[in-house]
Structures are given as structure tokens and as C-alpha cells.
Simulated assay, not measured.
Amino acid sequence: MAPTNPANGKGTYEIRIGLWATREQAFEAHERLTRALCPEPQHSGPCESPWSSAVVPPEAVDEGGDLYDELVMQAEAEGTY
């Protein structure tokens, strides 16, 4: 987390969402989440709360690999692994 601004108490937080999906499903989920954060992409000026997002391929997730073990176990149990 980036430092918190003492004047207003705001800081930068990161929210990660692990998703067992195909590439196409991941980008569809990304699009839907993006629209939830900013329903009017053509609005003038910046969003009220600045934000950014990204889709990261599985091979690029190198931090805390065990965070997604539960997703893999679920996919194996469902036969989608």
C-alpha cells in the first residue's frame, strides 16, 4: 500500500481477484468489473475516485502463489482443471 495522505486519510489499495477462467472469460469479467467502477466511460474529466485495472496471465502471478491454491483445487474437483 502506498502512504496514506494525512490530510484526507486516503491511500492506494490493491484488490486482487483470482479467477479460474479462459482468457476470454477473464477479459469479459474484467470488462464487467470496469463498468461497475465506471458505468459511463465517456464522461468528461477523471472518475471521482481514481482507479486502474489489469488482467494478468497465470504465468505472471509470481507473488504468493499459494493464494490461488483453493481455485486450483476447486477446478480439479469440478473436472475443469
Rank of each mutant, 00 (worst) to 15 (best):
Q42A: 02
D69R: 10
S49F: 00
S49K: 05
R16A: 10
L37D: 02
P3R: 07
N8H: 05
S53V: 01
L37A: 02
W20T: 11
L37S: 02
G11C: 06
S53I: 01
G45S: 04
E63N: 04
A21C: 10
T22R: 00
P6Q: 00
P3Q: 07
T80R: 11
P57V: 09
A26W: 00
T80A: 11
A60Q: 14
T12Y: 12
A60I: 11
L67P: 12
A26R: 03
E48G: 14
E59N: 15
G79W: 06
Y13P: 13
S53K: 06
V61A: 09
P41C: 07
E31T: 14
E59F: 13
V72T: 07
G45I: 06
G65R: 08
S49C: 09
D66L: 10
R23E: 12
G79P: 06
Y68A: 10
T12M: 13
Y81A: 14
L33G: 14
C38A: 13
L19E: 08
V61T: 09
G45Q: 03
L67F: 13
C47S: 07
V55Q: 00
A36W: 09
E28V: 09
V55A: 06
S44C: 13
V56Y: 15
W51I: 05
E40H: 14
G11H: 02
N8S: 02
W20Y: 11
I17S: 04
Q74H: 12
P46E: 05
L67A: 15
A26Y: 05
T22M: 05
L37I: 03
R35P: 11
S49I: 08
I15N: 10
L67K: 15
E63I: 06
S49T: 11
P3D: 06
P46G: 04
H30V: 07
V55H: 08
M1N: 14
A21V: 08
G64A: 05
M73E: 15
G79E: 02
P6T: 05
E63K: 01
V55R: 01
S52Y: 09
L37F: 04
S44F: 15
Q74M: 12
E59R: 13
Q42Y: 05
E48V: 13
G45Y: 02
G65Y: 04
L33I: 15
C38D: 15
E78K: 11
P57D: 11
W51R: 06
V61Q: 09
A26M: 06
T34G: 00
E76L: 05
T12C: 12
T34L: 05
E28G: 09
P50Q: 07
G18K: 03
S44Q: 15
V55L: 03
K10S: 13
S49V: 04
C47L: 04
L37Q: 01
P41T: 04
R32C: 05
E76M: 01
